[in-house]
């Protein structure tokens, strides 16, 4: 197996044998924990996330506190990265900057997609447990949270689906030719400039399509951004289709059990 991304230029095959526009295996289940109001389990390749939602419930920490937003529900995200999830056993403090940043990103994305105005003076808590990490962590968390929130029955305008895109040189003759790569694994993420895209809505006929999340921490040349973004949005649509399938098959099963 190749050890770094430089072989991509040879045959347009990535480190794990995928082509540029292929997602990893995405497997998801909902209603995995009966005790929670909503829950989901999602695997994107070897990135595995368990998500539970509790709420909407009365706001913690006393009524009328400084953080009470009054007429709409507040989305709280807690993220728990298991010490065994990475290659090295490493405990991450909850105050870790990167974790905090992801929490804020996820919270603010759902804050505007959920119909929070229906639940004044309340909190919706999303808890994410990361069991295994292999790239696209933020994207997997967003997807898992979407499913769990649907399971919890909280009304929202559409799925938030998310995916990562990178830019890799596609030939070693000239540096200008870059291929966007979809859904990165851990190794690719370390070597290539990438961003996480999250969209909401299906576009024409299925409601307005909006980019809800766009996070990029690496440098990339301006000219390459457009191709990356369009491939990313397209990837989000594919993810949305898979998530939709999971929800529908679950719904079908629930209905069938009710009928019989």
């Amino acid at each position: 197996m190749p050890l770094d991304t430089s072989t991509y230029a040879l045959a347009h095959l990535r480190l794990d044998g995928r082509r540029w526009n292929e997602l990893r295996r995405l497997h998801a289940q909902i209603s995995t924990q009966a005790a929670a109001d909503g829950s989901s389990y999602l695997e994107q390749g070897n990135t595995k996330v368990l998500c539970t939602v509790s709420g909407p419930q009365e706001q913690k920490g006393g009524r009328g506190g400084a953080r009470d937003q009054g007429n709409e529900a507040k989305v709280d995200v807690e993220m728990n990265i298991a010490a065994f999830s990475g290659m090295d056993r490493k405990r991450r403090a909850r105050s870790d900057k990167r974790v905090q940043e992801m929490q804020v990103t996820i919270a603010s994305a759902f804050q505007s997609t959920l119909f929070t105005h229906l639940f004044p003076h309340s909190t919706i808590t999303v808890t994410l447990h990361i069991l295994s990490q292999d790239g696209s962590l933020l994207a997997a968390c967003l997807n898992a949270a979407t499913l769990a929130l649907i399971d919890a029955g909280i009304p929202m305008s559409d799925y938030i689906s998310s995916v990562t895109v990178a830019s890799a040189p596609s030939s070693d003759q000239s540096l200008d030719e870059m291929d966007p790569l979809l859904d990165l694994n851990g190794l690719e993420e370390q070597e290539l400039p990438f961003m996480t895209v999250g969209t909401c809505g299906r576009g024409p006929g299925g409601g307005e399509e909006k980019v809800m999340v766009l996070v990029m921490e690496t440098k990339v040349q301006m000219a390459r951004l457009e191709a990356m973004l369009s491939v990313g949005i397209d990837g989000c649509k594919q993810v949305r289709g898979i998530l939709d399938g999971v929800v529908r098959s679950h719904g079908k099963r629930v209905l069938e059990s009710k009928v019989s």
Binding site: M1, A11, L13, L15, D16, G17, R18, E22, R24, R25, G45, N46, M87, D88, D134, N185, L187
Partner: peptide, 16 residues
């Protein structure tokens, strides 16, 4: 001197 266990996915295909 640290030992790591690496797990990597492999997508086998027929279009090569």
């Amino acid at each position: 001197g640290k030992v790591q266990k690496v797990v990597r996915e492999l997508y086998l295909r027929q279009d090569i």
